[in-house]
């Protein structure tokens, strides 16, 4: 690792001030950032640890919306997001217990790994990503692999999830990393169904609109008969070729719809 200083502010205001310094970067749970620092893929002068900021760790449900602080760990979401069971189950299946005790929802959404789980939940739920300066609709937030609408120094302070009538997340695990080889989050709201796919596209997380239209009319796996996605634009690697990933999207979507019943 290159050398850097660590600061541990206890309020969002102090963190924002610290992030205003030259070459400063936020440190969430470090489960992604520390490995990249070791590989010298990042060279911050100052790391601003968010883990001592209690005001961004809360989880609460009110008026049909579940609000999760950007610094909440996967383990706390798994334990405390009971108002939105599909989301709690997603968090409970990220990585392993030690990763879940450190990794945070804010870090996952800021990183926007093309195989991460939370981006699918946020997009399928039409969540709002709240930062220290503004509120961003999930539809405007994800801008492709490892790219989001966040500006330099902007902190994810909260994520607001409208609670659906029915929902499920099903991931086909990449057995070595436990990330999603393909993961699909399906959420049914009074005004329609949203389907978000992670792990598949070269553009990162995306909504499968044909499936949404079919499921909004008839929320059952059979509504998806005959629907499929082209292999073009899907990621390909030694674990899965593009056509296999495209196929898995269909299978995972059907399983998610069935699991959500």
């Amino acid at each position: 690792m290159y050398s850097f200083e660590i600061e541990s502010p206890v309020s969002v205001a102090d963190a924002v001030a610290a992030l205003g310094k030259e070459e400063a970067q936020a440190l969430g749970g470090g489960q992604t950032l520390i490995p990249s620092l070791k590989a010298r893929l990042a060279a911050p002068a100052v790391l601003v640890s968010l883990s001592k900021i209690d005001e961004i760790k809360g989880i609460s449900a009110a008026d049909g919306v579940l609000s999760i602080g950007g610094g909440a760990t996967h383990a706390s979401v798994a334990a405390e997001a009971g108002a939105y069971p599909a989301l709690a189950a997603l968090a409970a299946n990220i990585g392993d217990p030690a990763v879940r005790n450190r990794g945070t929802i804010g870090g996952s959404l800021a990183n926007n790994d093309p195989a991460a789980c939370y981006p699918a939940a946020a997009l399928a739920s039409g969540a709002t990503i709240v930062t220290n300066t503004r509120e961003i609709a999930a539809d405007d937030y994800f801008e492709g692999m490892f790219t989001t609408a966040l500006e330099d120094g902007e902190i994810v302070t909260e994520v607001r999830f409208p609670i659906p009538e029915k929902a499920a997340y099903v991931k086909f695990e990449q057995p070595a990393s436990r990330f999603a080889l393909v993961g699909v989050f399906v959420a049914k709201y009074p005004d329609g169904v949203r389907v978000a796919v992670t792990g598949a596209s070269e553009e990162g997380v995306f909504r499968w609109e044909e499936a949404e239209a079919a499921l909004s009319g008839n929320f059952s796996a059979s509504a998806l008969d005959g629907l499929s996605l082209p292999a073009e634009g899907m990621m390909g690697d030694l674990h899965a070729a593009p056509d296999y990933r495209a196929h898995l999207v269909g299978v995972m979507t059907r399983r998610a719809v069935t699991a959500a019943q």
Binding site: I6, S8, L27, G30, Q31, I34, P35, K38, L47, S49, S51, A75, D96, P97, A98, V99, N101, R102
Partner: peptide, 27 residues
């Protein structure tokens, strides 16, 4: 592994298991 994969470095911090290779001492 030093890359948060193997768990040989698991310790307890404030009662929670964490991978010590993926946490800074300052934290």
């Amino acid at each position: 592994c030093d890359t948060s994969q193997c768990g040989a470095c698991v310790i307890h911090v404030d009662g929670k298991s964490v991978k010590a290779c993926t946490m800074f001492a300052a934290e």
